[in-house]
């Protein structure tokens, strides 16, 4: 079965999350209830364009919830992990840890 084969396990990894920039974004959002674009930008060190592109991909996949609101009088777009995103992220991390453990 693919799942028992170590190569198979690697091939089953969620490629959307596995991309380093998106992994960083999801890790940042996993540690917060919600955060805006500037916070994720500061934490990730990505460029604005790059971050925007990755956030769109994650939103399209249903991993993020996006909420437009205000902080005081200033409009603000806030991101948080959806239930699907949280579950997928946790599953990805668990899979990675298993693969690394087996490698040892």
């Amino acid at each position: 079965m693919k799942g028992e084969n170590p190569i198979g396990q690697i091939l089953e990894i969620d490629r959307l999350i596995h991309e380093p920039s998106r992994l960083a974004i999801l890790t940042i959002l996993f540690g917060v209830k919600e955060a805006d674009f500037n916070f994720i930008l500061r934490m990730s060190g990505l460029t604005r364009g790059n971050l925007s592109s990755h956030l769109s991909k994650l939103e399209d996949a249903g991993y993020l919830e996006v909420k437009k609101g205000f902080i005081g009088k200033i409009p603000n777009t806030v991101y948080r992990l959806s239930k699907k995103g949280r579950k997928s992220y946790e599953s990805y991390i668990k899979k990675m840890e298993e693969i690394i453990k087996k490698r040892k």
Binding site: K33, F37, N38, F39, R42, I71, I74
Partner: peptide, 14 residues
């Protein structure tokens, strides 16, 4: 909101 989030971006810890 007044002194921090404008500079660092907004976040609420989980």
């Amino acid at each position: 909101a007044k002194y921090v989030w404008k500079k660092t971006g907004y976040s609420i810890p989980s």
